[in-house]
């Protein structure tokens, strides 16, 4: 079991309020991603759950039991650190076994569990190496091995892939997701990369300035962002925001259109503009358009378009995919 509930969790460092009251319900076995810009408090919130920081207010429940006064080791969670934090003088075997050794398990059982964990992660040939003799990806797997061997109620990951190169990151992303589904253990995963969040998560928590902006499935966030921040943060390239008179026609302070929901035409209806930059990726074409008073717009077309910088185009939004926001930035739903 690994059901985690946050009730109005707060954290201040001295006079600085970092986490401003977080409420969250994480169901057993789900993969939840905390995403947000750098410095928004993701790591702090994760460390509060881990018990590495004390809460300034509120409750953290694990399987219904309040754990705010329980030391980290007794919470039954395990954490994968951004720096991996492997013990440099211990072999891979020693690293993975350390938690079990501290728990006082018999030697034979430790050995059996370590070998099972190593097999799951393809680490068996490296069991007797020291961390410094491993590649980045292998170290990452040792850190994960150290987490899974204790059979925790939940895994906590703090930007575990950010030290890997792009190709390895995609591969590890798949491995982590596969492993989590296979074990069925709750996971909380922190990242600032919205692509990682969208691809890995069952549910995403969007954090901004120490506040939870929205909590939902990736597609909910994409289709029904709660506010301007979430709308702008989720999706790549970023959503276009238009305010002023055009927005007023839709009874909103601001309207938002995703680049993929702008129809591109050479003539007919739409907002006129000149292409500043055209990016041709083969699979997609991205156009960065100067639409005069409306502002700069980004448009995405699936497939190739024979347009280049300087060309004049007309952009029209898909009316069913228009997002409307009020003056405070909150989403308006029809």
């Amino acid at each position: 079991m690994g059901q985690i509930t946050l009730q109005n969790v707060q954290k201040s460092f001295g006079p600085v309020h970092i986490i401003k009251g977080a409420d969250l319900d994480i169901s057993d076995g789900s993969f939840v991603v905390f995403v947000g810009p750098s410095g928004c408090g993701k790591t702090t919130l994760l460390r509060l759950i881990a018990g590495l920081e004390d809460v300034s207010g509120g409750n953290i429940l694990i399987d219904g039991k309040n754990v705010v006064d329980v030391p980290p080791a007794k919470r039954g969670l395990s954490m994968v650190f951004q720096s991996y934090a492997l013990y440099p003088h211990m072999s891979v075997r020693g690293n993975i076994a350390f938690g079990l050794k501290m728990a006082g398990l018999p030697k034979a059982e430790i050995s059996r569990k370590v070998e099972a964990a190593a097999a799951t992660l393809n680490l068996t040939p490296y069991l007797d190496r020291k961390p410094r003799e491993l590649s980045g990806g292998q170290r990452q797997r040792v850190a994960i091995g150290r987490a899974i061997v204790r059979e925790p109620k939940a895994f906590l990951f703090d930007e575990p892939l950010s030290n890997l190169d792009a190709a390895l990151r995609v591969q590890m992303r798949l491995e982590v997701t596969r492993l989590q589904k296979q074990l069925g253990t709750t996971a909380i995963y922190v990242t600032h990369d919205q692509v990682e969040a969208m691809t890995m998560a069952d549910k995403i928590v969007v954090l901004n300035g120490g506040k939870i902006e929205q909590y939902g499935t990736p597609l909910e966030l994409y289709e029904k962002p709660a506010n301007l921040f979430v709308a702008g943060f989720i999706g790549s390239p970023k959503m276009n925001f238009i305010s002023g008179e055009v927005a007023g026609r839709h009874d909103a302070a601001t309207i938002g259109v995703r680049p993929e929901h702008l129809k591109i035409a050479r003539d007919g209806e739409g907002w006129p503009g000149n292409i500043m930059v055209a990016e041709h990726l083969g699979s997609d074409t991205f156009l960065y358009v100067d639409a005069g008073a409306i502002g700069p717009l980004t448009a995405r077309h699936v497939g190739e378009l024979d347009l280049s910088a300087g060309d004049r185009v007309l952009l029209s939004p898909d009316p069913g995919r228009l997002h409307r926001f009020d003056e405070t930035g909150k989403s308006l739903r029809a």
Binding site: L52, S78, M79, F81, P88, M90, F98, G99, R146
Partner: peptide, 20 residues
């Protein structure tokens, strides 16, 4: 973070000193 990892692994002050 190494000390914190040891803390999460259940090592007390003495164990952390000896092993880390």
């Amino acid at each position: 973070e190494q000390k914190e990892a040891a803390e999460m692994d259940g090592a007390g002050a003495l164990s952390t000193f000896i092993y880390i």
